[in-house]
């Protein structure tokens, strides 16, 4: 597959069985969900309030699912650009929640860093991608000096560095997975399995078991975590067999470890952002997605998973092995 085909062509979008299976499964779930909600309401298994909440969530997913699937199916360039935009929007929510948005120079530097990371990913220039993190951090520390306001310097720059590392560098790894010719099933597997964690948590609710970290997130119980761990790992082991066919990661041991990493990483992401919200005294990061809160409330678990999956796959089989590098910037 040529670089331009991978970046821009949707012609081979459904070539991999995992891609069409996941796409059809999600589409079918969205079609069937209203019937299930109505059925549950009719037999009295859910309250009226819960039914209304599920309706809002279903409507939101009807918008969100195409927005997530379309770029992935259309081509790697759209996927990378979409993840770049998601990183910027997540940073915006974080900056508005922490108050960092008032530091315009730091915020502008982070936006520049995220934009450059997206470009390095589009160019499949891994060295630039990795170099941009320390370089952006140095730039954040430098531009913060220009205000000549040492009071609060550590806090301002630390918040800036954390924001950039989470949304520029962290989420950027998800974009970099799109430099693999097999990126569609790989990214879909990551998204669907991380969503499995959330679905398990939502279905089981707060009623089952002891809270894991009651001060951080009283809704996350030990039962939820273990159930999520089992189901997510199981899903990764099933999908992974097809995604990694013919590679060392095909073995059940590797897939077991990857499944555990995705599940634990997702739970940690959830807890990390819950902790940030409790620290700030806010309930949600924003109201961008009706029924969910902000984008960060929905995609929090993806942030740590992105780097974990990227480096696990890159270590054992490599991401984008044999693909053209520096697609736009090399002279040859």
């Amino acid at each position: 597959m040529s670089a331009s085909e991978r970046l821009f062509s949707p012609m081979r979008a459904f070539e991999h069985p995992v891609t069409y299976t996941v796409t059809i499964a999600v589409a079918a779930s969205l079609v069937l969900a209203p019937l299930v909600i109505q059925g549950l309401a009719k037999v009295g298994r859910i309250t009226d309030a819960r039914r209304r909440q599920l309706w809002v969530r279903w409507q939101t997913w009807m918008v969100m699912a195409p927005l997530v699937f379309a770029p992935i199916l259309l081509g790697a360039a759209w996927t990378i650009a979409g993840i770049g935009l998601l990183s910027l929007l997540c940073y915006r929510e974080y900056a508005r929640a922490t108050g960092l948005f008032r530091e315009k120079a730091i915020s502008l530097t982070i936006v520049l860093g995220i934009t450059l990371i997206t470009f390095a990913t589009l160019d499949n220039w891994y060295r630039l991608f990795m170099a941009l993190t320390p370089l952006t951090i140095v730039l954040i520390l430098t531009v913060a000096l220009l205000a000549d306001r040492p009071q609060g310097y550590i806090q301002r720059t630390a918040l800036g560095v954390l924001g950039f590392v989470l949304f520029g560098h962290g989420l950027g790894h998800l974009g970099h997975l799109a430099n693999d010719p097999n990126y569609r099933p790989l990214i879909l597997m990551v998204l669907v399995s991380s969503e499995m964690n959330n679905i398990v948590g939502y279905v089981l609710g707060k009623r089952t078991g002891l809270p894991l970290l009651p001060q951080t997130n009283p809704g996350k119980t030990v039962t939820n975590v273990i159930s999520g761990l089992i189901l997510t790992t199981g899903l990764v082991m099933i999908l992974g067999q097809s995604v990694f066919r013919g590679t060392v990661l095909e073995s059940w041991q590797h897939l077991l470890v990857l499944g555990v990493l995705i599940s634990v990483g997702g739970q940690l992401g959830d807890l990390m952002f819950s902790s940030i919200k409790r620290d700030l005294g806010i309930k949600d990061f924003d109201v961008t997605i009706p029924g969910h809160g902000g984008l960060l409330d929905r995609f929090d678990s993806i942030v740590p998973i992105s780097a974990i999956v990227f480096h696990y796959v890159n270590y054992f089989v490599g991401v984008g092995v044999g693909e053209s590098v520096r697609i736009w910037t090399s002279r040859g």
Partner: peptide, 25 residues
Amino acid sequence: KYKPAGDLGLPHHEAFKSLKRENGL
């Protein structure tokens, strides 16, 4: 001091009208 945006949690059309609206980039 951690100080979330004054209009945090308001949908755009409400935020535009809010006396607490703050400017981003």
